[in-house]
Nucleic acid binder design. Structure first.
Length: 460
RNA sequence: UCCAAAGUAGCUCAAUGGUAGAGCAGUCGGCUGUUAACCGACGGGUUGUAGGUUCGAGUCCUACCUUUGGAGCCA
């Protein structure tokens, strides 16, 4: 007999003589003559209520039907007499697939996310984390849909790389050398004896490789894991996280900002349209302001202002900030939040940042002091998108690289893109987990990623 | 890495420097078309670790560990 998902059983438009449900018991409530079971199989937030009559032969097993046990139940789908649900299952036959004894750590009552983090192998069985990971899947699907509908080509950029995308943070080294007996040379470790014959790392960004493909297939995107060995201990940073990086040939900074705005709005709208049940749970238990904030972003045009203007606004605000506001310095979290939450009261795209605080690949503007860079700022999270128009002029790029003390020989292929058929092109990066945090209201990145990796933590 | 707060039963939390407690969970029993059911009983603790102050420390002090929040770096 074919299994029916709880989601589909609850959506049924008529009763059904015989269906098979398989899942895990959330609660059991006993009466004298029968018991209620709540079964969840992860297909949706809601449980299916099962009635087990005490006259059933299988009722002798009732003591083993505890929270967490896995069961396979066949019976009749009937209209429920209770008011909390439309349908319920009158059990005919119950098979216990796996018992869960009293040591099962998940209880019927709510747990803190800090506690659930310690049992990351069981937390997907909780209501909140079930919702989160279903939404994570849906968001990944929406990302692909957005780009595929717009004729972007999905590129798999390498996870092991020999180039460090300068400015993106500390790298994890990839090596097969024995750390207790490294192949020594007079300068230290001899990486020519290493697996790839040179130093290699886990990627911090697929951007440079994506540029290669944009300069052939026009519009491309990457969507994959990236790694940072930074000792960052915050609720917004992980050592392993996923990033989306579109790259477009024949596109300038304005086109880049257009796409970023359209993309962010598309993802939020997709969530609002397809994850109603999950949204209600987040809005109720995670963040009461969630719906208001999502509509805030979806309904408004993003305000676009040059960096210099943003600095002037901050200076003239009369507010005292912990970090001083000055031309040439990076915007701090408090500055970003002031702009979106207090001054403009809408998402803000800041562009044309000073060249000195931006990486070598960003295009120099004609004013000689700024770069064609942009950041999209949203309430609460701050920067959610960072992007730029790339420097397409060979001589200017080479100069930038020298100013950043980079070895031109190691980037020979990157320079080749400007040597042969160079085109203006632009792109941006969006942190997948940051976007999920914004969409769900969940405040800690460790609750958004199935198995978080942070300094000192690589469990499971 | 820096700043701040916290750590007590399986979970969530109480306890003026003076006998460590509740709710939930668990076990046992009862009751009811129940729905994070309800009622009763029972079991459950080296108060994060190591020192110190004190007649006496969960409580005060020091160090360390862990967690959380904020900052920097960034996505």
């Amino acid at each position: 007999m074919q299994r029916t998902l709880v989601k589909n059983a609850l959506r049924s438009d008529s009763d059904c003589e015989s269906i098979l449900i398989q899942g895990w018991i959330r609660t059991r409530r006993d009466s004298k003559d029968f018991s209620f079971l709540a079964i969840n199989d992860g297909s949706c937030l809601k449980n299916l209520q099962v009635i087990v009559d005490a006259t059933l032969p299988d009722y002798t097993k009732i003591d083993q039907l505890t929270t967490g046990a896995s069961v396979s139940i066949e019976g009749k789908l009937i209209a429920s007499q209770g008011k909390e649900q439309k349908w319920e299952l009158a059990a005919r036959k119950i098979d216990i697939l796996g018992i869960a004894d009293h040591t099962y750590p998940l209880q019927k009552k709510g747990h803190t996310s800090e506690y659930l983090r310690e049992i990351a192998h069981l937390r997907p069985r909780s209501n909140l984390f079930g919702c989160l990971f279903r939404v994570r899947s849906r968001l990944a699907y929406a990302i692909h849909t957005f780009f595929q509908e717009r004729d972007f080509v999905y590129i798999h950029t390498p996870i092991i790389t020999s180039s460090d995308c300068e400015g993106a943070g500390e790298l994890f080294r990839v090596t097969t050398l024995d750390p207790s007996k490294p192949e020594a040379s007079k300068d230290g470790i001899d990486f020519s004896k290493d697996f790839f014959g040179k130093p290699t790392y886990l990627t911090v960004s697929g951007q440079l490789e994506a540029e290669i493909f944009a300069c052939a297939l026009s519009n491309v995107y990457t969507f994959g894991p990236t790694f940072r060995a930074e000792n960052s201990n915050t609720s917004r940073h992980a050592s392993e996280f996923w990033m989306i990086e579109p790259e477009m040939a024949f596109c300038d900074l304005n086109g880049d900002m257009d796409l970023a705005e359209e993309f962010v709005k598309y993802l939020i709208r997709d969530f609002l349209n397809h994850c109603q049940e999950d949204l209600e749970l987040f809005a109720k238990f995670v963040d009461k302001e969630l719906l208001k904030r999502l509509e805030f972003v979806v309904d408004r045009e993003f305000k676009r202002i040059p960096y210099a203007e943003a600095i002037d606004i901050l200076r003239e605000s009369g507010k005292t900030f912990e970090y001083p506001v000055q031309h040439g310095a990076n915007l701090q979290s408090e500055h970003e939040r002031f702009l979106t939450e207090e001054h403009f009261k809408c998402p803000v795209t800041v562009f044309d940042y000073p060249r000195e605080i931006k990486p070598f690949y960003m295009r120099a503007n004609d004013d000689g002091t700024t770069a064609a860079a942009m950041d999209v700022l949203v309430p609460r999270i701050g920067e959610i998108v960072g992007g730029s128009q790339r420097e397409e002029r060979l001589d200017v790029l080479a100069n930038n690289m020298k100013e950043h003390n980079l070895n031109l020989d190691t980037y020979w292929w990157y320079l080749d893109l400007r040597r042969y058929g160079s085109v203006p092109h632009s792109g941006f990066g969006l942190g997948f987990e940051r976007m999920l945090m914004f969409i769900t209201g969940v405040a800690n990145i460790r609750d958004i990623i199935p198995f978080p990796r942070t300094p000192g933590h690589a469990e499971f």
